[in-house]
Design a protein around this nucleic acid. Structure first.
Lengths: 316, 316
DNA sequence: GATGTAATATCGCTCAATGCTATGAAAATA
DNA sequence: TATTTTCATAGCATTGAGCGATATTACATC
């Protein structure tokens, strides 16, 4: 025999409030409605739930026991309502974000930290990849969101790209690197130093090649490769090696890792770091929350970077 | 916004069984029914519960979370069903029993112990009283059952009395008491010994007076009064005092307390120890269980007592 | 790919349950 | 006893659950 959970919840409210009328009020129902519900329940289980002929309706032993269970049901139900509300507001849920490694590690991760301090119940699953894998991830539903540098022409069919930051790269080195003391840097100045190479298949690696080509350096020596950002930062900080990084990454790293960008104009690709999403799919609300958060954060970051560059330029 | 608990239960079943069809089967409902229920729930909360376009229907993050809560509701509901079933069979519940002190302590308590080893979930609230207080207790619903010695003419209006044991009293003393060695006891033999008196307002006290009168002893000395059975037993066992007790109490006590009944015919009242209940009220099923249990136990006890008395008589 | 199979969604229908207001009955309180 | 409070019942409209029949869609297998 299956008992209607709704009935148990009503019973719990009545017992808790100490009377049918008050219970009905607490439930937002009319008194006759709950009265009839209880009569039906008593009929079904074939036993009295309330002591007969007592006016402030008092439960029998069985009624009290069932009310306890009804209370458990009620609390589970309330928790469910709460959960739904939080999900709707994007304050709970899971979020699968994929992106290019350097940018995710160097910029996005700290924003994730900030986001999670505000929305503690949003779980973020991060993964790494470049355009191809991210695109398929978005298409098959394995990703809600991709973050990567992209040229407008590269945006796949049926997808939307929202720029977050300018994608210009710089040549990075440790703070206090000999080259930072030079007023104007020539090809000959750079030649002696070894390079840290990003992953071979990364756009950043192609950027490195292009950048060096643009300043006339065709031949270069690589002394470290294959590392993710944390490794690159360590090698960079502990040696005189050079590498190519998005300016935003260098900028964000300054607090903890003493890096500098060489004041050297390099040919940077016409790309922007941004968000790639499937066009007509909004996914869980937490995605929208995260996106708007990211945009706001990046806007602030961009402003700080612009301001910083102006100051540097004026000084230089 | 209130979520239908039934929907959460259905969701839990679907997620647990890994598919809508199997979930429906487990719930004993048709597949279209649960499909529509889920569609309705999705409509209400305004968010998808299942990943779109997956054929062995897989829950979204939200769906899985709600399913967990649905599981809690389901288990509470099942527990409720179980509870009702146990109540109906009299295997659970609360039982308020009142009775005359000596008999409750000396006979009923050990039967309660036996009853509870079989029906662990029946809680028994025992109280003490005599006819008047027991009757009002039964009438106002404070008692489910009364156990006391009663003469048929004393049975109140609208109540039923079911005899359990013969109510004859005996003069009790410690085993090895000097009087037990006498072949025939005379009034002069008894005269020197002090008496333990039951409570002044108890029927047993009146029985004591009557018994002594019947054997011609008008004057007697009381050296202990006011004690409940455990005290009486201790005083009895540790001294040469005498008292009047129902034979059944002496009989039941023999195992632990070495008592004997004097082979002396006393005028015992025409009463029987039995159950008093309100006529047209069956109360909780546990009452019926307990009553039938008591009757069986007392029948066995009566048989043992009869047998024992025959043997004693033959020997004596 | 094409096709067959299994899983799910939709439709049309009936019936049970819930909702309300109005009102009656009974217990508690004065 | 009179009055108030509290619960039960009646009547009626609406919603949702239930079913079978059937359409649709994803997955599997060739």
């Amino acid at each position: 025999m299956k008992i209607d959970s709704e009935h148990l919840e009503i019973l719990a409210a009545i017992v808790e409030k100490g009377g049918l009328t008050e219970g009905a009020e607490a439930l937002g129902k009319s008194q006759p409605s709950v009265s009839r519900s209880m009569a039906l329940l008593e009929d079904r289980i074939g036993m009295p739930l309330f002591e007969p002929g007592r006016r402030p309706l008092r439960p029998t032993e069985l009624g009290a026991s069932l009310a306890r269970l009804g209370g458990r049901i009620r609390s589970a139900n309330q928790e469910a309502s709460l959960l739904v509300r939080r999900f709707r507001q994007g304050l709970a849920g899971r979020l699968r974000v994929g992106g290019s490694p350097i940018f995710m590690d160097g910029v996005v991760a700290s924003m994730v930290a900030e986001f999670q301090t505000r929305h503690a119940d949003v779980q973020i699953d991060q993964s790494y990849g470049y355009l191809d894998s991210l695109e398929t991830g978005l298409r098959n539903g394995g990703l809600d969101l991709a973050i990567l540098p992209l040229h407008p022409s590269q945006v796949p069919q049926d997808m939307e790209f929202a720029p977050l930051l300018s994608g210009n790269n710089v040549i990075a080195c440790r703070a206090g690197h000999p080259l930072t003391r030079a007023r104007a840097i020539t090809l000959a100045d750079i030649a002696p130093y070894a390079w840290i190479a990003p992953p071979q298949n990364s756009p950043l690696y192609r950027d490195l090649l292009r950048a060096l080509k643009s300043i006339g350096q065709e031949d270069f020596r690589v002394n470290f490769s294959g590392g993710m950002l944390a490794s690159i930062q360590s090698v960079l900080a502990g040696s005189d090696a050079l590498t190519v990084l998005p300016y935003s990454v260098v900028f964000m790293s300054r607090r903890t890792i003493p890096l500098e960008a060489l004041p050297l104009k390099i040919d940077h690709p016409d790309r922007q770091l941004g968000l790639l999403t499937v066009a007509d799919r909004q996914g869980p609300p937490a995605v929208a929350q995260f996106i708007s958060f990211l945009r706001a954060e990046c806007e602030r970051l961009q402003a700080r970077m612009d301001h910083d560059q102006q100051v540097t330029r004026r000084r230089g």
